[in-house]
Simulated assay, not measured.
Amino acid sequence: MAAPLDSLPEALRFHSPAALVDIGANLTHESFAADMEAVLDRARAANVTTFIVTGTDLDHARQAVALADAHPGLYATAGVHPHDASQWSSSLATEMAALYQHDKVVAVGECGLDFNRNYATPTEQERAFEAQLTLAAEHGLPLFLHERDASKRMREILASWRDSLSDAVIHCFTADKTALYAYLDLDLHIGLTGWICDERRGHHLRELVSSIALDRLMIETDCPYLLPRNLPAKLKGRRHEPALLPWINAEIARWYGIDADELGRATTATAQRFFRLPAAS
């Protein structure tokens, strides 16, 4: 567990000209337990005003809802990550359905397929995924999707469900051009992270970002994970946090070919529509 930070280095105290929405913040992670208020204060100072707290299993979804209830500008997702798909059961489906009645729960997920690590078998993952697609269709909620090394199968499943679903976002998109175009053809949204800042594995995204229409693009930290590798200063403990989202926004804007203000305003408007959030004051 990283030690809490009293403040960020001066070089990392960013401020976005546009209010930003972090659509993927794992604020239930234990590393945030000791300094949640300070984390949120730093984010708001950076003009990150809205946070979608990711619920990856029943316990974390309940924690995400509790955080959303306790703090203005926070909302929650509720779902079962493919790593935990073996836990899926009818009783778990009932518990999740109850969470979808809460007005701060704005999406079903994080759910999907991960054939990279296969902590659950592909069969277990597909079973849990389709069960959560059923819940999304029944409750009229958008989907917050995880996919890694499974884009072909993900597309096949989503194509058969697409007419029954509202909106869906591929969170933390890291795949190739073929997958991106196929997801866009399914009228999905795309979430981009600091992966684009990683010279080892993320530079292919630079050539792809401008293919995503602004009304289909959203941004996220996926904190405490995926700390951008090209930050202008080192961060003690290397815990990513929402206050660094303006750096990601500016990096994406650079490769999109527009200024950071325009990208920020567009992705915030897209997130507000997608998650049905109130307009920023």
Rank of each mutant, 00 (worst) to 15 (best):
S211T: 11
S211G: 08
I212M: 10
I212T: 05
I212C: 03
L214G: 12
L214H: 14
L214R: 15
L214W: 15
D215S: 00
D215V: 03
D215C: 04
D215Y: 09
D215K: 07
D215W: 09
R216C: 01
L217C: 06
L217A: 06
L217P: 00
M218A: 13
I219N: 08
I219H: 06
I219L: 15
E220A: 12
E220K: 13
T221K: 11
C223L: 10
C223R: 02
C223M: 13
L227G: 03
P228H: 04
P228T: 02
R229M: 11
N230G: 07
N230I: 10
L231M: 09
L231Q: 04
P232E: 08
P232W: 11
A233S: 11
A233P: 00
K234T: 13
L235T: 06
L235C: 03
L235S: 04
L235I: 01
K236H: 07
K236T: 05
K236P: 00
K236A: 10
G237K: 07
G237L: 06
R238Q: 14
R238L: 11
R239S: 03
R239C: 01
R239Q: 05
R239W: 01
H240T: 04
E241Q: 15
P242H: 12
P242L: 11
A243R: 07
A243Y: 06
L245A: 05
L245I: 12
L245S: 02
L245C: 06
P246F: 01
W247V: 01
W247T: 01
I248Y: 08
I248M: 05
N249H: 09
N249Q: 11
N249E: 10
A250W: 07
E251Q: 10
E251T: 12
E251F: 01
I252N: 07
I252K: 08
I252L: 14
A253V: 13
A253T: 14
A253E: 15
A253N: 14
A253G: 13
A253M: 14
R254K: 15
W255C: 03
Y256I: 04
Y256K: 12
G257N: 07
G257D: 10
D259Q: 12
D259W: 11
A260N: 09
A260W: 01
D261G: 09
D261W: 14
D261F: 14
E262H: 08
E262V: 05
E262S: 07
L263R: 01
L263Q: 04
L263V: 08
R265T: 13
R265P: 00
R265S: 12
A266N: 08
A266R: 14
T268G: 07
T268D: 04
A269E: 15
A269P: 02
T270L: 15
A271Y: 13
